[in-house]
Design a protein around this nucleic acid. Structure first.
Lengths: 232, 232
DNA sequence: TGTACATCAGTGAACGCGCGTTCACTGATGTAC
DNA sequence: TGTACATCAGTGAACGCGCGTTCACTGATGTAC
C-alpha cells in the first residue's frame, strides 16, 4: 500500500517533479518575479489550467521551489561537513569546507540562490514551511562550533554590554550550549558569508575581484577567525 | 544663457524629476522587475507614450534610477565620513560611521537598495554609466584606510601566497598606496557589510536577530577590526 | 515689435503580446460490491 | 471476474487585466529675421 502506488499516484509524483524542473529552468531565464505558470505549462506541452491540479496558485509553486532550494543548499552544506568530518578535519577546516560548499552550490544554482537570498519577490511572502529548510546551513555551522567548543573551546573577546541580552536570547533560541559571544559572532559570520556569495553572484565583483575562488577562500578563513577558529 | 533657461527647459527638468520620483514610489510597491512605464504615467496623469519624450525606454528609466540610488547612497556615506572627520574622529570611528550610514540609508530606501544590491533585474544589464556612482561607498572606505595607513599604519597578517598577485592588481586598480593585504581585507569587508545590510533588509533576520541596531554596530566593529582598525 | 517657421511636449489609438485564474467538459484510472 | 460508480488529470474557451512601444496628430513654446 505504501510501496507500490497506483499509476495515478506515480504519475502525479512525476508530473509534479516535471513542473518544478521546468519552473526552475524558467527561473533561470527570467527570474522569479516573471515566473509564469503559462510559460511552464507551454514548455511541458500542457494547457495552463492543468497546472492547477498540482499547485493551487503561482505562489504555491514559488513556495515549493523555495523549499526545494533551501533543502538542496542545506544538503550540500551538510554533505560537505560530513565529508570533512569523515576525513578527520578539525573544526576550522570543516567551517571552511561548508563555506566553500555554499559558494559552489550558489554558483551552480544561481537563480535558486537568488530566489532565497536575493531581493524578496514582490507580492510574495514566504509561509511557515520554509523556516525549517531555511536553517539547515546555519545549523551545520552551529554544529561545527559546538564541537569546537566542546573540544578546545573558542576564545572570543567578551560582548559589549548592549548586546549581551540579545546574544543570550539568540543562544537559547537556536544555539543552546554555545557561549553568547560565539552565537553573536556566528550570526554575523553567516550574514557575511551570504554577502560574499551574493556580491559575487549578483555581478558586483565585475571590475573588482578577478580570482574569485582564491579570494573567497581567504575570506572564508577570515570568517573562521571571526568565530574563534584561528588558523593553526 | 546657462543660468536662466527657458520655460521649456525648466519644465523638462521638473517633469523628468517627477517621473523618477513616481518610478521610485512604484519601485517600492512592486519591485524593479514590475516597474511599469504605464503605471508611472497613469499616476502622473500623463499618457504612457508621453514618457518616451523623457526616457527612450523602460531600461533607460531603470538605469537612471540605479545611478540616482548609487549617488544617493554614496553621498550618504561621504557625508557621514565628512561629519565624523570634522568631529575629529579617528579612522575606526569614521569606518563605523560610514557603515552605519550605509545601513541607515538602506533602511530608509529599501527598494532602491534592492535595486542596486539585490538580485539582478532579468533582462537588464547595467551600462557603463553606473560604474562611477557605484564606487563612491568603496572609495570612502578606501579614503579612511589610506589616512589610517598614513597615520599609525595598519597591521594585518600577510596574505597567503595564492592571493598576493590578485591583491596587487586590485591595489593598483583602485586602491593605490594601500598595502595589498589591506586592499584584500577591504574588499572582503565591503562584501560583508553588504551582506549584513542585505540580510536584514531582505527579511532573513526574521526569527533570528531582534535588536538589529545593536547587532549591526557590533558587526561593524568586527569589520573594522578585520581591516586593521582594532578597538582602542 | 511683429511675423513665419521650427521645435518639441503631450495625445489617443493601435499593435501584438502575455498573464493568473475559473469553469464546464471529457475520458481514463481506480474502487466497491 | 464483471459491472457501476467515483475520482481526478487534462482540455479548451473565456474573463479581465496589464504591458512596452510606435505613430500620426495637435498645439504651445521658442527662434530668426
Amino acid at each position: 500500500m505504501s510501496t507500490v502506488r497506483g499509476a495515478r499516484e506515480r504519475a502525479r509524483v512525476e508530473v509534479t517533479a516535471a513542473i518544478k524542473d521546468e519552473a526552475r529552468r524558467s527561473l533561470a531565464a527570467e527570474g522569479a518575479a516573471k515566473l509564469s505558470l503559462r510559460a511552464v505549462a507551454r514548455e511541458l506541452g500542457m494547457v495552463s489550467s492543468a497546472l492547477y491540479r498540482y499547485f493551487p496558485s503561482r505562489n504555491d509553486l514559488l513556495t515549493a521551489l523555495i523549499i526545494d532550494a533551501y533543502d538542496s543548499l542545506g544538503a550540500a552544506a551538510e554533505d560537505a561537513d560530513r565529508t570533512a568530518l569523515a576525513a578527520g578535519a578539525p573544526p576550522r577546516a570543516r567551517w571552511i569546507a561548508v563555506c566553500e560548499a555554499v559558494r559552489a552550490w550558489a554558483l551552480a544554482h544561481p537563480h535558486e540562490y537568488a530566489l532565497v537570498y536575493g531581493s524578496p519577490v514582490p507580492g510574495y511572502s514566504a509561509p511557515q514551511d520554509t523556516i525549517g529548510p531555511a536553517s539547515r546551513v546555519a545549523n551545520t555551522l552551529i554544529g561545527i562550533l559546538r564541537s569546537a567548543y566542546a573540544g578546545h573551546g573558542l576564545a572570543l573577546p567578551p560582548l559589549p554590554a548592549g548586546l549581551r541580552r540579545e546574544a543570550g536570547r539568540m543562544t537559547s533560541d537556536f544555539a543552546e550550549g554555545l557561549p553568547p559571544e560565539v552565537t553573536a559572532a556566528l550570526v554575523a559570520a553567516w550574514a557575511q558569508l551570504v554577502g560574499l556569495v551574493s556580491l559575487e553572484l549578483f555581478g558586483q565583483y565585475e571590475r573588482v575581484v578577478e580570482e574569485r575562488a582564491a579570494f573567497f577562500a581567504h575570506a572564508a578563513g577570515q570568517l573562521a577567525h571571526g568565530v574563534g577558529l584561528p588558523a593553526a
